[in-house]
Design a protein around this nucleic acid. Structure first.
Lengths: 331, 331
DNA sequence: CGTAAAAATAACAACGTTGTTATTACAATT
DNA sequence: AATTGTAATAACAACGTTGTTATTTTTACG
């Protein structure tokens, strides 16, 4: 009951192969007939049959995104951005929330042109994916391109930034007990920078033991009751910061007067928090753009794309950090 | 370079039509040849070409889920459950985060068998969707099946439950200034029940003006500082409850000793909160199951499915509600 | 005008399946 | 042994496109 190019051919009075060419804007068909056919197609509400197209040609103009763990805000913000970027590149995006394995299987059936891997940490296997892919995070041990967001550098920048503001007692609140390499990199970066500046002390690392805002809240309460009294705190993620800020408020610490706070995850939502948080990290828009540009290039010219591409983290100043002189926590 | 049924036919020494039948487990082919073919297919790693299958037959065994707003936890919990349920029914699920309009367009190209609409509130148009669809929420003004989760009844149950525990001063914390019919229904249900019991008072409705946990937090602070001092609070969603509990804790209210709390959204995650929350609503698993069963039935027999299907909310008791006698907020 | 070259269109063979129809092989019946 | 019936397999026409090749129509030029 649906309309095919043969139907168009019949009413336009040409052969169906001419219709095909006209619709694909081939130079082999006379402009006037092309227009006539286009008009007919429009009038009849023609829609090309995707399966038939797929059967003869290789490109599907669809990119699959694998996201097994629907969870926190920062990732979902990145997904939205990627979706926009993909649309801009005249691709479509479909999302699978299944395991990598079965997602790939399905995507192969759909003949997607490429895959964006969004596996949140844990045991991301090193195996090859048999479909053009990109992921982001830490650039090592992968057989496909990775957008490296340089967690270590981000954390070092954060520490140095606070150090320049005069802070000497800086705490890190993040997930320390995890196998997620992204989290590990963050704390390593922090430690390196602190050690270099010779201000690393016992007790400056606080383990949230999780990713949720409540984990951040609890960790902060523990920090406040600990002997280590920082003048500035670096948080490992948006969600943790949410709990962190809540805990500080509750315990009557003014941000940034009493404590400065600097959060990882450079997403616009940071501005909407209780206190607009100064944050560090590669801006999501930039990560999204790098990921889809890399992927589309990789799809066309697999050789032209480097396996690891490092992005530079930046600090976006808002209003949660202040110079240190006036804000010694214990006075 | 990929393997087709013709390749299998060649090495199995039969015609390709026989291979097709064998692979589809047709009774028209002798068991032994069938086995032989199956073995060859296995050995050669044959994978059917989806596009070709789509081209000849109508079923795709794929269901599309439209979810334009990646956001809060309760919905994502439902999405996960739906995905499981779909897999169980031997379908696959793909997700689009685009507008309804363009999602439908894409799904049509993929020839999905059905669509699950997950449009979070606002201006959900009444138009027909041109593809078998289901949604959930409030069952009216829709031209396709709706799983009605009966927000009003849920809220009435909640009020009555607390009333039976002896509570007379009950507050509702939820989003009052919205066009989302789901939210509206919740507050209507609450008001109805309160009025019926003749315990409705001015000030028992607190507007969060939003959906996030922080909105819940702020609203609760306002409530605590208001003249209306409830012995029990009903929250409109998981995220709001998160902020609610936080605020209570901060202001040194013990739950449930000082105040009872009952939350909408019957999801397992309620048990993982600071205080395991007693909650009301149709359990997500049940919603998920109803949605995909309704959809799959609708795909096969469009006439056999009622436009509105009401699910019964239940109260899942955890540890956030206690009898009222001992817990007058102002003593 | 006639003819060659160029431009426009038509015809047709893929692509990898499924379902229908045609053919073959083999058994059962007389 | 000829006839009929049935089980098994083969052949083939779709499905709706795209790209290649063949044919027709138009244009250009001597």
């Amino acid at each position: 009951m649906t309309i095919t190019i043969k139907d168009l051919a019949r009413v336009a009075g040409v052969s169906y192969s001419t219709v095909s060419k006209a619709l694909n804007d081939s130079p082999l068909v006379k402009p006037e007939t092309k227009n006539k056919i286009l008009k007919v197609a429009e009038e009849m509400g023609y829609e090309p049959n995707f399966a038939a197209q797929r059967l003869v040609s290789k490109e599907s103009k669809v990119i699959g995104l694998i996201w097994p763990t629907l969870e926190r805000l920062a990732p979902s913000s990145l997904v939205s951005n990627i979706n926009e970027e993909i649309t801009k590149s005249s691709y479509s995006m479909i999302l699978s929330v299944n395991s990598i394995q079965s997602s790939i299987e399905m995507f192969k059936r759909f003949q997607v042109d490429g895959v964006i891997l969004f596996s949140e940490g844990e045991s991301e296997s090193t195996e090859t994916l048999s479909l053009p892919s990109v992921t982001y995070g830490v650039g090592k041990n992968k057989s496909y391109p990775v957008i490296d967001v340089n967690y270590q550098a981000a954390m070092e920048d954060a520490v140095n930034y606070l150090h320049q503001l005069g802070h000497r007692k800086i705490a890190f609140v993040g997930n320390l007990t995890t196998t997620d390499e992204r989290q590990i990199e963050k704390s390593i970066g922090f430690q390196k920078a602190m050690t270099k500046l010779e201000i690393f002390e016992d007790g400056c690392l606080i383990d949230t033991e999780g990713f949720g805002w409540y984990d951040g809240y609890m960790a902060t309460i523990r920090l406040i009751n600990s002997p280590y009294q920082p003048t500035a705190i670096i948080s490992a993620s948006y969600d943790i910061s949410a709990g962190l800020v809540r805990a500080l408020r509750q315990e009557n610490f003014n941000v940034p007067k009493d404590v400065s706070v600097l959060s990882y995850d450079n997403i616009p939502q940071m501005a909407n928090m209780e206190i607009p948080l100064t944050s560090v990290g590669v801006p999501v828009e930039e990560i999204a753009q790098a990921m889809v540009q890399t992927l589309t290039k990789f799809i066309k010219y697999p050789q032209s794309v480097p396996l690891v591409q490092s992005l530079k983290p930046v600090i976006t100043e808002r209003s949660s950090c202040a110079p240190a002189e006036k804000n010694l926590i214990s006075e």
